[in-house]
Design a protein around this nucleic acid. Structure first.
Lengths: 237, 237
DNA sequence: CGCTACCTTGACGCGAATCAAGCGGCGTGG
DNA sequence: CCACGCCGCTTGATTCGCGTCAAGGTAGCG
């Protein structure tokens, strides 16, 4: 259970990627940040934090992919959000000082910066920009969640599956071939995002395959007819 | 279309209710606030702001009730949030500087304080507490939305209807009799919250009536057997 | 090489959406 | 003041999407 700790004394390289939450800090702020964080690696399937636990840190995804999920009725999992490189996680509970209402699980091997809770809260006071940034992120998440609500209320499973594939694309993009999704899920995980049964998810994926909308190769999903997928989703974006 | 403007020069009475967003401001801050706001009344059904519009103000619900909703597939409405006295609305788009992604509609005659956009943003700089308060509110809304997602994914309509009634109770409470919900919706609105058809909503309400869980009197809903309703919702809270 | 976890396909049945028809209240206009 | 029309509510009949159960295949791993 003890995860590998990588010592990562400087944050400039991380920020240099250009998509870190801490972008807005200046050089001085960054080196101070480096003093209060540790870099930890997680294997696929490992939990970063647990539903109902108390937050002790802010997490920043350095490399890898993470899902935020919760256990619903009869132990069925629901995927609520997906986290990509440069995104932060655990901010909601941390900043509003509540328990986590969902768990964070690595969906591939990941490297995560763990920023000390008190230091982060202190930093938001020193740099109000950080707080505005948090507001911006939660706002985006709230909007996404509410769009998901409408979709679950009003669309059938086929449309939702198409939306899900588009969402995966929007979040993680494609592999260099420009068609294959840059993320792999188990069929069950896809179902857990779409809000359907595993069997229905499988059926729809093979239907899309037959309809030449996608191509399946194990867990790899290649979107071969994007316009048709958009039409199937019946969405504006 | 021109709404009645009530002149409301002092905010202390409003805050005196004890549940205003601006509670944290001191006396000085409050009188300054009063200079930058107008009080407007809306009739049931009137729009406070519109999906896709740009935010020009922060709204604070002084008296009445408001729903936040969006138009989904085939013009079907989805109710996303409910706003009660003392709550603010329009903060998400305002603070993250985006278009509204849902509309705000009065579900009963309401009186709303309209706080100038620039003044509010200025105030958050002067009083970082305000920003923390906004974060706390969005966090709560995000949590609620994500619970709604799980519910829509994993529960049947009967359970969701029971949850909805409990949610209405949690939000607006009871009339003095201690049993009747302190809010009235059309059957269609209830369906729009639950994520079902109007007919199904009606059928379930009359089933609950037959099962002696609730009593119906026009649009009034009296919860006569709360434990049974909780059991029907099959929820922890 | 066998076990386990995941994937796949088929058959079946139920929940809930849809379609249709009738009722009742309320506001408007003759 | 009454009649008409509209809108919201209600109930029944029918359809069908999709969840569930069951059985078999496949791939990765110890």
């Amino acid at each position: 259970m003890s995860n590998l700790k990588e010592n990562n004394p400087d944050c400039t390289t991380c920020v240099a990627h250009g998509h870190s939450f801490f972008n807005i800090l200046d050089k001085e702020g960054l080196s101070e940040l480096a003093l209060h964080k540790t870099c930890v690696t997680y294997k696929r399937g490992q939990f970063i934090f647990n539903e109902n636990g108390f937050p002790h840190a802010l997490y920043c995804l350095n490399r890898g992919k993470v899902k935020l999920c919760t256990i619903g009725v009869d132990g069925k999992e629901q995927i609520l959000r997906l986290v990509k490189t440069g995104d932060i996680l655990g901010y909601r509970a941390l900043i509003s000082n509540e328990r986590y209402h969902c768990s964070a699980v690595a969906i591939e091997d990941s490297s995560i910066c763990v920023v000390d809770r008190n230091y982060f809260l202190e930093a938001t006071r020193k740099h109000p920009q950080l707080l505005f940034e948090v507001v911006r992120i939660i706002s985006r998440d709230l909007k996404t969640a509410e769009e998901h609500i409408v979709s679950l209320s009003q669309r059938n499973v086929r449309e939702r599956m198409a939306e899900a594939l588009l969402f995966f694309k929007a979040t993680f993009g494609f592999l260099p071939d420009g068609q294959t999704l840059n993320v792999t899920f188990s069929r069950e995980e896809i179902a857990d995002y779409v809000g359907t049964s595993t069997e229905s998810a499988i059926r729809l994926l093979s239907e899309f395959n037959q309809d030449k909308i996608i191509e399946l190769d194990g867990k790899k999903i290649k979107i071969t007819n994007l316009p048709k997928l958009l039409k199937t989703a019946n969405t504006n974006d």
